[in-house]
Design a protein around this nucleic acid. Sequence first.
DNA 1: TGCTAGATGCTAGCAGTGCTAGGCACCATA
DNA 2: TATGGTGCCTAGCACTGCTAGCATCTAGCA
Lengths: 199, 199
Amino acid sequence: MTSPAAARRARQLEERRSRIVGAARALAEEQGWDAVTTRRLADAIEYSQPVLYGHFPQGRTQIVTAVALEGFEELATALAPSTLGDTGGDAGGDVERVRSLVTAYLDFAERHPATYDAMFLLPVLVRFASDETPAVVRAGFEAIEDTLRHLDNPPADVPTTAEVLWGAVHGLVALRRAGRFPAAHQQERIETLVNLITG
Amino acid sequence: MTSPAAARRARQLEERRSRIVGAARALAEEQGWDAVTTRRLADAIEYSQPVLYGHFPQGRTQIVTAVALEGFEELATALAPSTLGDTGGDAGGDVERVRSLVTAYLDFAERHPATYDAMFLLPVLVRFASDETPAVVRAGFEAIEDTLRHLDNPPADVPTTAEVLWGAVHGLVALRRAGRFPAAHQQERIETLVNLITG
DNA sequence: TGCTAGATGCTAGCAGTGCTAGGCACCATA
DNA sequence: TATGGTGCCTAGCACTGCTAGCATCTAGCA
C-alpha cells in the first residue's frame, strides 16, 4: 500500500539519484575523475554532501560504480550489431565483422574515456568473472564471443580467443590513453589485430 | 673543484634519494600506491616531509616516476634474453621465442604489480613515444621488436605488430589485475596469443 | 483542522592528503 | 673563533572523503 505521496517521493528520490550519477559522469568526462569530489557533486545537484550518502552508502566508489554500470550497458549495445550481419559467406566477411567489432569498441572508449576508466581502471564495487557478475557486465563480453562464434572460420577455442581479443583491444585503448603509443598508426594497429584474429 | 666534504655530501644525498625511491617502491608493493603518502615516506627515511621536495621538486608524481624508470630498466633486462637464442630453425622455434617473451613480460608484471602500475597506469613525468623518451623506456619496446624481427617467419610490419603484441600482453595484465578476467585460464590465453602472433 | 512522530537535509567537524612558508640551528669556511 | 650559508624542522594551508548531531519540515492520524 503506497500512498500517492510516497510514490511521488520515490520518483523524486530516483530522479535525484540519477542526477548524481549524471553529474558525476559529466564532470568526469569534462575534467577527469580527480575533479569528481563529493563537494562538487553536492553543488551540482544543489544539496549538501550527506545527501549523496543517502543514495550511495558506500560513498564515492559506489557512484563511480553506477557510472561504470551505465557504461557496460552502452558498450553492450554498441557491440551488439557486430554479432548480427551475416555477410553471406563472401571472402571478406570475417575481416569485416571483426573489424566492425573492434572499431565499435575503440569508438566507445574514445568517446567516453572517463566512463571507460570507471569500467576498467578504477576500483569499483562489482564482482567480475563470478556468479554475482551483473548480466549487463557480461553482455559485452558475450558480444565478442558471439561475433567470433559466427565467423565463417571461427577460432578453435572461442571463449579464450574472446578473452585475448578483449585484452588486446583493451591494451590498445589503455596504452594509447596513457600516451604510451604514438598517436598515429592506430588504423594500422587495428588492421594488424583484425588480421591476427581472422588468420 | 669539489672538496672532500662536498663529495661526501653528494654521496649522502644520492644515497638518501635512492632510499626514498626504495621506500616508495617497497611500500607500494606491500600496500598499494594509495599507502604511499609523503608523510609515510618521510617516516621511512627518518626525515621530515620537506626533505622529499628537496630531492623531488615535482613532488609525489616525480617519486612515482623514479620507480617507473627503475621498472623500465628491469623490464628491458627481463625481455632481452628473448631476442637472443637462435633455436636453429627447428619448427617450434618461433613459438618458443614468442612464448618466452610473453612469459617474461607477464612474470615481471606479476612479480612487481605496483611497479608495473607506475610504468603503465599512473600519471608520470615522462614523455612517451617522443624524441625525449628516455632510452631505458624504449628498450623494452625494442626487445619486442627484435624478437619479432628475428623470427623464422617474421611478420610483415614488425613495428606495428610489436605495438599490437605489447598492447595485447598489457591488456592481459590489466584485465587480470583489475579482476576482470577469471583467475584461471591464463596459460590458455598465453598459448592462444602466441599462436595468433606466430600464425 | 491540529498535533505529533519521523523522515529529511543541514552545519560543523574529523582525520587524512599533497605541498610550502618561515625560521632555527648547525656546519664549513675564512 | 666569528660568520655566512645551508639543511632541516615545525606549523599550517587548502583540499579530500566521510559522519555525528541537530533543526526543520512533512505526512499521517485523530
